[in-house]
Design a binder for these strands. Structure first.
Lengths: 196, 196
DNA sequence: GCTAGGTCTTGAGAAAGGTTAAGAAATCAA
DNA sequence: TTGATTTCTTAACCTTTCTCAAGACCTAGC
């Protein structure tokens, strides 16, 4: 159950056998089905979720009822509404499963406990957050500076796996464009590249 | 010189006198004039900069020569290209001073040393990065989901100080819209609210 | 194999925002 | 204080993207 988890953690920090054992005790496994909620808007995000298997998404819904994709997380990634998790405020997000998933959950208090008892995990999360900042910044810059077509090309270049695995309408939402626009862009790009 | 710095750090973690003394040794002060560069595109970002006084901006320049604002940092904020700083890759950003500034700089190696010697600073940066993730996420969501007018209103609500202190064309760039559009939006909002 | 539900594509018209250009206002230095 | 420089505003026109609507495609369950 912890295979993906520890391979991820060991990518970033060194962990003794004893520390591993201790870390394990803070997590509890959970399976969720396709379309099942892990978190609904208005509730407090009480856990960080690590994805051992499957695929989650987080999104919010605007006044017009339109969903806006915020994140996707598959094997090896974390998922949560960090704001709600850290501040104890009701979340403005939904989190649910796009594909059936196996998760490792850690609660707010256990998270704090773990960081204090296993300082190397404090380091792990500092590094994780660093990387997260960098990737968010890239996405933000692309969102601010690029046209719809450029945004799609940028995503194709930086995260081709996402485009393969995520349904197209959700990719469009993630890019902040409409499904129709994305469809047209793909058509145009296909035409331009294949000169049979 | 360290007044703003320690008041900031103590906001997030507890620091003993000895730790404070030790932390100080890793930083060096630097003053820069208005319009002076702290980092230019193509160079490696070798320092994190803490702003004791003044105002910095980071931005990139696209193929057409248009500047896109990424961040602003004034008293109490950090500034760097985290990607370049952490990965040792050449930066794609420029950083310069909008207002004359007094900074505290810490190098890459000193940063790593400090975190290892003063674990509470590891914690400080984990918390700092957490908060950064949350605010970046908010900006990203606003950028993806909102119209130009809504983006401006969102920024006015969440960060009025920014709008007051930053020249308007730079605010427009920060929002990913043109100065002309921002000017039109402000006119429209002023008209709507003042019914004399 | 057939049908229901979802997903993707396509087209026409509308709206938002960008571009270009010119002038007004504010700022700064001589 | 006055000319020079920069910033902000305004207007006409143009491009991109969205909206709405219809039809094609695809897949799962019967």
């Amino acid at each position: 159950m912890f295979e993906v988890f520890f391979s991820q953690v060991k990518d970033k920090v060194l962990l003794s056998e004893a520390e591993q054992k201790l870390v394990k005790t803070f997590f509890s496994p959970k399976k969720i089905r396709k379309k099942q909620y892990l978190l609904q808007e208005g509730n407090i995000c009480r856990h960080l979720a690590f994805v051992e298997k499957g695929l989650l998404r987080s999104y919010n819904v605007d006044e017009k009822g339109v969903e806006h994709m915020i994140h996707f997380a598959w094997e090896g990634w974390w998922m949560a509404d960090m704001l709600s998790f850290l501040s104890d405020e009701p979340s403005t997000y939904h989190i649910d499963a796009i594909e059936e998933a196996e998760l490792l959950l850690i609660s707010q208090t256990d998270f704090e406990k773990m960081l204090l008892k296993v300082p190397v995990m404090e380091r792990y999360f500092r590094i994780l957050f660093q990387n997260n900042i960098i990737s968010k910044e890239r996405r933000l810059i692309s969102s601010i500076t690029n046209s719809a077509e450029e945004k799609f090309l940028h995503l194709s270049a930086t995260n081709p796996a996402l485009i393969k695995r995520i349904p197209q309408q959700l990719v469009a939402s993630y890019l902040g464009i409409t499904p129709e626009t994305l469809s047209r862009i793909k058509k145009k790009l296909a035409k331009g590249s294949s000169k049979t």
